[in-house]
């Protein structure tokens, strides 16, 4: 019997839909599984108290603070560097040797696994620059790690700004820098924001690189050179060493909710950008 094109189409399309549904179910399962087991253990004191007995008891407040500090600092460093790099690439130079070198560097940086960033951060920031296991070592390492994300998303956003805006701005007597800051960046802001928000997400999720650079201290940090333990590392240690499954699930729930919120913000920003370009 010969299979007709219509029949093979039905079969293949059914298979593709099956695959897509499985993917969606896996996503829902992961989120659901963590939240079902973890949400019940989250309460005010869990979020605001220090942890006791290696995390077996108490809360995760120092880890929340540590995560915010490391992530915040990383993005504060990476965002201006990334956006300025993009401005250079799109507005201040024509395509040539230098731009292709910069692009090559960015592409390679994007491909490097986080454990290598961890190794580098450890030997360079922690040991050679004597910053120790610290917020600052972790933040600098993560900043380099998310730089390509920020450059790529900003470049996409800046290239989407209509050429006519630039011409008008020049025509009205603005300098190149005024044109960039008052027109291009302003129009590209939602897109750049998306990149920054996604980078925040990557920093929060990262474990291997912070483990080798920020350390794993449970204390509240008292200086930029203090070691901290981020939420994802805390979750890893709790579950891996079987310290407390309850607290592991609760920490994972906090992580998942944060990531969901971040994705929603990125999505809304992207929609605003799309609306603007249209």
């Amino acid at each position: 019997m010969k299979i007709t094109p219509a029949a093979s189409q039905r079969f293949v399309v059914a298979f593709l839909w099956l695959i897509t549904s499985i993917t969606l179910l896996v996503l829902l399962f992961i989120i659901g599984y963590i939240l079902v087991h973890g949400l019940g253990h989250i309460n005010w004191s869990f979020l605001t108290e220090s942890s006791r007995r290696m995390g077996r008891e108490g809360g995760i407040f120092p880890m929340i603070v540590g995560t915010i500090l490391v992530t915040g600092l990383a993005v504060i460093i990476a965002a201006p560097v990334g956006v300025l790099t993009t401005i250079y690439l799109t507005e201040y130079t024509r395509e040539g040797k230098l731009t292709s070198i910069i692009r090559f560097g960015t592409d390679c940086l994007a491909a490097i696994p986080s454990i290598i960033f961890g190794l580098f951060g450890f030997v360079f920031f922690v040991v050679v620059l004597r910053m120790g296991f610290s917020i600052i070592s972790g933040a600098l390492t993560l900043a380099i790690m998310v730089l390509p994300t920020i450059i790529r998303t900003s470049e996409e956003a800046i290239r989407a700004v209509p050429k006519s805006y630039r011409e008008v701005s020049y025509g009205l007597g603005s300098t190149r820098w005024q044109m960039v800051t008052k027109v291009v960046l302003k129009s590209a802001l939602p897109g750049i924001g998306t990149g920054i928000v996604l980078s925040i997400g990557r920093c929060i999720s990262e474990t291997a690189a912070v483990m080798l650079t920020a350390g794993s201290a449970l204390r509240m940090p008292d200086s930029p050179f203090a070691s901290v333990r981020t939420l994802s590392l805390h979750f890893y240690i709790l579950s891996r060493e079987g310290i407390s499954m309850e607290n592991a699930y609760a920490t994972a729930s906090v992580l998942i909710i944060t990531i969901l919120v971040i994705n929603v913000i990125a999505y809304l920003l992207m929609r605003r950008l799309a609306a603007k370009v249209r």
């Binding site: 209509p162 006519s164 805006y165 011409e167 008008v168 701005s169 020049y170 025509g171 009205l172 007597g173 603005s174 300098t175 005024q178 027109v183 302003k186 129009s187 603007k276």
Partner: peptide, 20 residues
């Protein structure tokens, strides 16, 4: 050049309002 462009102004074929 910027001040030259202020003294010699240009209106384009397609209306190009800035997004503000």
């Amino acid at each position: 050049v910027p001040s030259l462009r202020r003294r010699i102004g240009m209106v384009y074929a397609v209306p190009a309002p800035l997004p503000c």
